[in-house]
């Protein structure tokens, strides 16, 4: 830099250097890209709208004049209170209760098995396990979560029922166990939700600050006291949310229960008989190649709608619990 330069007044702007906004292809491309990305992002909204539109027109109120929706043919009252579900018989009944019963019995058995085991595993991984063991176990749980539902169904049918349930209940306790039964479906469902419960609960447990654990130890706690009486209560909202999400997943689970529990709509609490869940009905009805427009076909949407409302409700509840009761640790 020469001295002369320093002393000289401001250099005049180069021709062509303008900072003002003006049209250019670069700017046009930016705007174009932005619009396209917005399009991608709004596709998820479109999906939701399509789901809602589908249920409204097929189940609640048909928009086309010459067709009717399910609830225009069957009253909501019958749907909710009739205790028989027999769309394929001459004497058709459309009472959702047997399907709801099957769904909740199986999901209930699954929860009784999966939730405690998943939570205990989460406590072990977060509080007791050495980091090395944790790093080894996490991928195993991921593999467990990645096993397709069909495989679990097969496992229930060819292993759980003949080699676990029948020796235990039929040979020892003299309780008849059907080859298709709700118990085996519930057992594999329990295994299926373990990874969900475990990883979400573990996240919640690990988010509990160390100071809280130290405070617990300083008051003369054993590791058991700290884990169960300090850390678990502090992570309670996260644990509840993980439970709700897992139950919602269990309710929506299809292939495993369809294979293992069979397709016999039954309003009963006996877990050793065949039962039909909402999801299994939907699979079964589609297998029969039901022609569009018939009442059986429309019942698919009514059942799907019920399932959708229940799982959506549970997911929203889970999110609400997570946000409402989250303890704020800085």
């Amino acid at each position: 830099m020469s001295l002369a330069n320093v002393a000289s007044p401001l250099t005049p702007p180069k021709a062509g250097l303008r900072l003002q906004k003006q049209f250019s292809w670069v700017r046009a491309r930016e705007a174009c890209v932005r619009a396209m990305l917005l399009g991608c992002a709004s596709l998820s909204l479109l999906t939701t709208l399509a789901i809602v539109y589908m249920f409204l027109t097929e189940a609640v109120y048909s928009v086309t004049p010459d067709t009717t929706a399910f609830f225009q043919d069957v009253s909501l009252w019958d749907f909710l209170t009739d205790t028989e579900w027999s769309p394929q018989f001459a004497d058709k009944h459309f009472g959702i209760l047997p399907l709801l019963c099957g769904t909740f019995v199986i999901a209930g058995i699954g929860s009784l098995i999966g939730l405690p085991i998943g939570l205990a595993a989460a406590i072990y991984l977060s509080e007791y396990a050495k980091p090395k063991f944790r790093r080894m176990m996490k991928p195993v749980l991921e593999v467990l979560a990645g096993i397709p539902s069909v495989v679990y169904g097969y496992f229930a049918l060819v292993f759980v029922t003949p080699y676990v349930l029948r020796p235990m209940f039929q040979s020892l306790l003299r309780i008849d166990v059907d080859i298709f039964n709700a118990m085996s479906a519930g057992v594999v469902l329990g295994v299926m939700i373990i990874p969900t419960v475990c990883s979400l609960s573990e996240d919640a447990l690990r988010a509990v600050p160390r100071g809280l654990r130290e405070a617990g130890y300083a008051l003369g706690s054993t590791k058991y006291d700290v884990s169960l009486k300090v850390v678990v209560p502090a992570a309670f909202s996260g644990i509840v949310a993980s439970f709700l999400l897992a139950i919602s997943r269990a309710i929506g689970e299809t292939m495993a229960v369809c294979i293992a529990a069979g397709q016999m709509p039954r309003l009963s609490l006996n877990p050793f008989r065949s039962m039909e869940t909402m999801t299994a009905y939907m699979v079964g009805a589609s297998l029969g190649d039901t022609p569009a427009g018939t009442i059986e076909y429309k019942s698919l949407y009514a059942v799907g709608f019920t399932l959708f409302v229940i799982t959506l409700g549970m997911n929203i509840l889970a999110n609400w619990v997570m946000n409402r009761f989250r303890e704020v640790y800085e």
Partner: peptide, 15 residues
């Protein structure tokens, strides 16, 4: 630790 109690820098009330 029952005989030797401790109070920490950051207050750590349990929720």
């Amino acid at each position: 630790r029952k005989r030797v109690g401790m109070v920490f820098q950051k207050s750590t009330p349990f929720p």
